[in-house]
């Protein structure tokens, strides 16, 4: 991160006995947002739970949310229809016919919360409230056998959910051809 070494605002550089005063590259452009403006700008949910809002949802609450907003595309039991299957496929990843679902493939439960908040339901993203998102995530993880029938998901419990394929990813080791 070489550019950060340009701070503080003045750096004295000695080059061949000549002294240069290098001014900071900051332009001062841009404006500092108020706390309200920053809060409205949006947020990201991270695997450690950072960003997750208050609220909670249960499996049974999620069943109703799912049937109303999700089942038409993803199938009654999330088995896939017009849109992708969300459950099933465990142990298929080495089969030559992998079925990559939330249950079989996704490494973090927080990703499901983040993605539903961003992009689902497809025709009206943003229409679910935080409780409904926690609930539908709980329902899907229960359908996939990841959490029990009595699970309650919130900003504390969701990051602690152990996804079946949590250890299924490796870093990029290309080039891999001669």
């Amino acid at each position: 991160m070489p550019r950060r070494s340009w701070r503080p605002t003045f750096a004295l550089l000695f080059v061949s006995g000549v002294v240069f005063a290098a001014e900071s590259e900051r332009t001062g452009l841009g404006s500092e947002p108020t706390a309200e403006e920053l809060g409205a700008a949006g947020y990201t949910v991270f695997p450690d739970g950072k960003g997750l809002p208050a609220g909670s949802g249960t499996v049974s609450e999620g069943r109703a949310v799912y049937q109303q907003f999700c089942a038409a595309c993803h199938g009654k039991n999330a088995e896939g229809d017009e849109a992708a299957a969300l459950v099933g496929g465990r142990d298929s990843l080495t089969s030559g016919r992998p079925r990559k679902t939330v249950e079989s493939y996704w490494p973090y439960a927080t990703t499901l919360w983040d993605y539903i908040r961003r992009s689902m339901p497809y025709e009206s993203p943003g229409s679910l409230n935080d409780d409904e998102i926690y609930a539908v995530v709980a329902h899907l993880l229960h359908l996939g056998g990841v959490v029990g029938e009595d699970a309650v998901l919130d900003q504390e419990s969701l990051p602690r959910v152990e996804m079946p394929n949590r250890e299924g990813f490796v870093s990029d080791d290309r080039p891999d051809t001669d």
Binding site: T111, D114, S119, F169
Partner: peptide, 10 residues
């Protein structure tokens, strides 16, 4: 850390 967004995991 990365957010592990849907389009960098799934």
């Amino acid at each position: 850390m990365p957010s592990m967004a849907r389009d960098e995991t799934s």
